[in-house]
Design a protein around this nucleic acid. Sequence first.
DNA 1: GTGAAAGCGCTAACAC
DNA 2: GTGTTAGCGCTTTCAC
Lengths: 334, 334
Amino acid sequence: MIGLNEVARAAGVSPATASRALHRPELVALRTRERVEQAAAELGYRPNVLARGLRTRGSRTIGLIVTDILNPFHATIAKGVQDTAEAQGYTVLMFNSDEQPGKERRALETLHGHLPMGLIVVPTAQTRENLAIVDGLPTVELDRASGKEGAHTVMVDNVAGAREAVTHLTELGHRRIGMIAGQQDISTARERLQGYREALELAGLPYDDHLVLPGNHREPDGRLAALRLLSKRLPPTALFVGNNEMTVGAVLAARELGLDIPRELSIIGFDDSRWAQTMSPALSVVSQPAYALGQLACQHLLSVIAGQPMPESVRLPTQFIQRQSTGPVMTVQA
Amino acid sequence: MIGLNEVARAAGVSPATASRALHRPELVALRTRERVEQAAAELGYRPNVLARGLRTRGSRTIGLIVTDILNPFHATIAKGVQDTAEAQGYTVLMFNSDEQPGKERRALETLHGHLPMGLIVVPTAQTRENLAIVDGLPTVELDRASGKEGAHTVMVDNVAGAREAVTHLTELGHRRIGMIAGQQDISTARERLQGYREALELAGLPYDDHLVLPGNHREPDGRLAALRLLSKRLPPTALFVGNNEMTVGAVLAARELGLDIPRELSIIGFDDSRWAQTMSPALSVVSQPAYALGQLACQHLLSVIAGQPMPESVRLPTQFIQRQSTGPVMTVQA
DNA sequence: GTGAAAGCGCTAACAC
DNA sequence: GTGTTAGCGCTTTCAC
């Protein structure tokens, strides 16, 4: 490996000067700086970030923990984070928690050993406790809030997004609207349920516990919950589903039951995707700016790292996109 | 940060012994080892991998460069790699090349500074040259071959997969079968085209240049290529598409043209996905074991790192899955 | 079986 | 503006 020593020798300066020339050009005479830069380029010098990190107690590295990289929403978030970090010269160490607090813990432990300068995390149910592992590390919680005091969060306005979607349904005349909600220990799921309740209230409809089923955010759970809701004697005429994966399951369930969408059942999902756009009928959704969410979280984190005062919580708006999966309620069957 | 010094002091031994106790237990008396381990656990000791890496010239880190993390195929591969690496105590540094050799170069340069022990890369068109940056680093090429001499590769049998799919079409009676091929500087695309040709030959059909269009592996290109092929005076009655993203474009194109699948047009895509499974009609595909591919590449790499002799090239089989997007050729129109 | 000492490559403090 | 020196936390000779 070509080290700074070689570069310094080739440029006829001391290693310290070579380091300054590369890292703090303003402290060095223009001439020497040029010599060093040229030598570095010729030798193909690449800084050893391990040595640098050891010395400065912090590599230009940030951690990213998502709950499911196979979920396109998370993959998009990850790309937003990575692109932004890379543009600023940061390297991202990415981990998957698979929604499991234990995996999150291990990820945090591994990360800790890498002396990262910051962390972006999509929290699990135990993030508040787990974050003790990286105590003092600048952290931004993304998409969900762990509930930790004073944590920085970047999220969408889930309440408004859900309210808008469900209001769309009430305005179409639906009065029995089911919801497949996420696990209630996740802030996002709570907020979406809250929006659902608010929309019902606005429409003067009662909240009916039996029409709301939990789900663990994955496809099979969405399917099972939908099957249960739709098999009731008096099934809902519309379904609002709390995340993208469960929506797939719900649509599959509707197909299994031979229900025509939207004639016999209206469905709205949370989070847009290519699948939602191209399935037939195309799915009405509450769309989230996933990429922007990742970008913003990363910028936010870098600002916090830089010591700039930052607002604790940032909310991005969602957008309701009406497609073909929602329609007026059928005239009541005898 | 709790360092090895603190642990050593707490255990009443020297740092050197503490290091040995944790890393080479057999060199240390059982009693002292226990004391050290207990001290480490109590203090919550986490090794500083930067310091260790600096000292041993190589962190327990491997690099992974994929061409598009938003493509579910690549996301799945990444998960396979990560899960496997993590199980062996390795940390993955993941980068996105977006198919751009320039981004790949920068990723390799960044990676180099982290002193990784190995690299898994989904090659771009210039990987052969770019790999000079990490000269000597154990490397496994995944999904595609860069053409570098003696490189380790883990791929699927693209020729057989394509041949099988196209043979399915010829057996259904199709005689004008179009192909949307990937860029021919990518080995995978060349091999799939090769399989297409072999299938035609097996069926005694001539190879017609006009029925084969290139594409840059992304959705819009697939759409445009399909539109061009299907707008011919004598359009193909079936389409074989070289990757998953382009297949989406091709299906959208068919819809735009109002073509009924499979009555008026049969389509087969390469690589399965949830989209392919749930779109209607469900898509017949050549399915690839994406997760296993990632796992295998990682195992292979770790073996190479460990100095075990390894075969240069590994091929996994594909599997043709017939769904509803393929059917017998329509009786010829006047 | 254990400790002392050196050094991985780099940068910050302190001279000059 | 530049060089000298020291040390980040760890592992690894080399003694004992």
